[in-house]
Structure formats: C-alpha cells, structure tokens
Design a protein around this nucleic acid. Structure first.
Lengths: 162, 162
DNA sequence: TTAATCAAGGATAAAGAATATCCTTATTTC
DNA sequence: GAAATAAGGATATTCTTTATCCTTGATTAA
C-alpha cells in the first residue's frame, strides 16, 4: 500500500506555487522541468488539483497554475486527496456474511467491527494531514533550504511565471 | 492506495483463533471455509502471520494455526504489518535533488520536509493500530454478534479444531 | 506401517492499478 | 495569425495484487 508518486509531485508543486507573486501563473512545463518530472504525466496530477478547486488555471502563453487560496488555508489533506482520491485505505468486503452458521435472513445492524477500527486509523492519518497547512511546509523549507538555493530557485521560477 | 484484502482476512482469522481453546489448532481449510475465502491464497496470509511469529503452527491431521500469545498482547498493527509489510505509505523519491538551481555538490542534511510530514501521518496511523489489541476486537464482537450466531460459530470452529 | 492431512513455499497466470506517452481540442496571449 | 497553454481521451508499459497449482517434508490417526 503505497501512495502514488503524484502525491509527492503535487505537494512539491504547491510549495512552489505558494511562492508565486499575486496574479502570476506557472506552467506545467516549468513545474516539470524544475522537479525533473515527465510533463504529460505531471499534468494529470495538476488537473486533479484543478478539479478539486485548489488551483486556478489560465490558458495561452503566460498561462499555467496558481493557488486558489492562501497557503495558510490549504491543507496537506486537501492536496493528497485531490490526487489520491478520498477512498479509505481499508476496504471491507464483509466476509462475516460468509459465515456458514449465519441464517439466510440475517442482517447486520452496523458495519463490521474490524472495518470500524481500521477506519479509525485512517481517520487519524487524515486528521494529521488536515492539521498541516501548506504554509507550514513553506515555513520549514525557508528555514532548511540553503539561502542561496532558496533565492536562485525563486528567481528561476519568476523568470518563467507568466 | 488500498490495503490488501489479505489484511482483512488475517484480522478476521485472528479473531477466530482468539476463541480457540488452549492447545488446539485450526486449519487453513476451516478458516477459508468459515470466511468464504480461497484456501490457497488465504494460506499466504497465514504464512505471513507465521513468519512474523504471531501464530504457532502444527502439521498433519489436527494441525493448523493457533495464536502465539494472548489476544490482549497482540495488536492490530502487528497483524496488519505481518501481511502488508512495514514499508511506509509515502515513498520519497527526493525530487528536490532535480532542482536545476542546485550546485552539483549540494548535499542535504536531512530528509525532505514533505516526506517528514507525510511520515508523521503514517506514524499516527500506526500508533492508532498499535493501541488496539485483538482482545478489544473480541470484546466488541462478543457484544455485537447475535448470541445464537456467536454460539453456533464457536461450535462450528470447535468441531474442526484439532 | 500406511494413508490421510497439514503448513511451507515455489512457479505461474490473470486482473487491476500505477506510470507513463501521444494526440486532439478549445482558449488565450502576443 | 502564430505560438503557447490546460484539459482530457486513447493507448501502452510496468508493477502489484490476486489468485491457482504443485511439490516437499512433517505429523497424526487408524
């Protein structure tokens, strides 16, 4: 059970978009080049962000993506779910129903206890991601990334932002 | 990102094994029949439990599986990891290293911040599963499952336990 | 002693998901 | 009008999951 690599891509792309000046856009091409990713496939991840309403898009030269809201209001969970989907990691196939001792007309009043426990763990995972804002990531990166690299990356992006 | 169905199977099988009288074993065949699962494939999941040391096995007629320790000492996490593996759900491919602004000799002192956050969510998921014991599940089931069904299932198992 | 049963595990196959790549379309900018 | 863009459909490739089948060695019961 491993998350799609597109989740990693989307998070990094959002971190870059968070540094974009107001009203500017950054294209798939630039994002793909910056992260060394296949442009066409990265595009699918960005489309996911777009469909979820997390980013705005613009067409034509100087078009691309920008965040649809401030980084402090965008959670990790939103980004992860936009790409990975909202399905729970544990799928209950209700195998208790196969119990040979069961009467044919037996009906369960509640979801399987096993599933409920597994779903609680799922929810703990989601709660953790819901508690982290994109702005938190940017804050950490601004501390950790070497100042020269931080600065040159910012300039690299600005040169390509429409 | 969805857990293997074998995780569900293993949890339900452990719940059944928890009700087994001391010293008795239950075979793959009986467990597969009780849950309506393919015997050969379920066997792989049970082998996982065995390799992780969560169950003891016995060969020959009257052989099969039993828990290696009391249900109160067996956590959901142990069972899930025995089948699903211990790899984290988020794999970091370190795409920050592809940044075109990076000097060739640049070296990162710590794991990527994105990965660290995703791994914390992973750990929250694990912590939740670590906090649930197999005995907790049995306690819930003993309350929820209709008494007649609970009793007949117990007898069904006993008839087949070696 | 013999026959039946069991877990372990190797080999292989089928189905589905993840990871791409290519192409068309409509829109926007210059 | 030309170039660049996002959106998205079609297709291909690779990897994982989900099986199935068979062999081996151990154990038990008759």
């Amino acid at each position: 059970m491993i998350l799609k690599s597109q989740v990693e891509w989307a998070l990094h792309c959002c971190a870059i978009l968070a540094g974009l000046p107001d009203g500017r856009y950054l294209s798939t091409k630039a994002l793909a080049e910056f992260h060394g990713l296949p442009k066409e496939y990265l595009s699918k991840a960005l489309q996911g962000l777009s469909q979820a309403g997390l980013v705005d898009t613009s067409l034509g030269p100087s078009g691309g993506y920008r965040l649809a809201k401030p980084p402090a209001e965008l959670t990790f969970l939103e980004i992860v779910e936009a790409v990975e989907g909202r399905q729970r990691t544990f799928v209950c196939t209700n195998i208790r129903a196969n119990n040979p001792c069961r009467p044919k007309d037996h009906c369960d009043s509640s979801p399987c206890a096993v599933a409920r426990i597994m779903w609680e763990a799922d929810e703990a995972w989601r709660a953790k991601l819901r508690g982290v804002k994109l702005s938190d990531l940017v804050g950490i990166l601004s501390q950790e990334v070497a100042p020269e690299l931080w600065k040159s990356s910012f300039e690299w992006v600005l040169e390509r932002a429409g």
